[in-house]
Simulated assay, not measured.
Amino acid sequence: MLPAVSPVVVAERVTKWYGPRRAVADVSFSIAPGEIVGLLGPNGSGKSTIFRMLTGYLVPTSGRIAVAGHDVVEDSIGVRRAISYVPEDAPLYDHMRVGEFLHFMAGLKGLHGAKARAAVDEAAERLDLVRVMKLTAGKLSRGFRQRVSIAQALLGNPDVLVLDEPTSGLDPHQVIAVRDLIQSLAGRHTVLMASHILPEIEKIASRVMILLDGVLLTSDALKDAAPDFRLRLSADASLESIRAAADAVAGVHDIVAAADEGGRFLVAADRRPALAADLLSALVGAQIAVRELTELRPDLERVFLDLTRQPEAAA
Rank of each mutant, 00 (worst) to 15 (best):
R81F: 11
S238P: 05
M193P: 08
V162E: 05
F229E: 14
G69I: 13
R291C: 01
E312S: 06
M193T: 04
M1Y: 05
R230I: 07
S281Q: 10
V249R: 01
E122P: 00
P298E: 10
L296P: 00
V73A: 12
P60D: 11
V37R: 09
G138R: 04
R297Q: 15
V73I: 14
D164E: 05
L111T: 04
S62W: 00
E295D: 09
R309I: 00
R22K: 12
A274R: 07
A118Y: 03
K47W: 08
T136C: 13
K47H: 08
I77E: 13
H173W: 03
A226F: 01
Y57R: 04
A248T: 03
S45N: 02
L239A: 09
E122Q: 12
R97L: 01
Q152W: 02
I50Q: 08
T136H: 07
D299A: 12
T294A: 15
S6H: 07
M96P: 01
G41R: 07
I182T: 07
L212T: 01
T294G: 09
P273Y: 10
A32H: 09
F29L: 04
L222E: 08
R117A: 14
S234Q: 14
Q287D: 15
L233M: 10
R145M: 09
D224L: 03
A244I: 04
I288P: 10
H103F: 09
F265S: 08
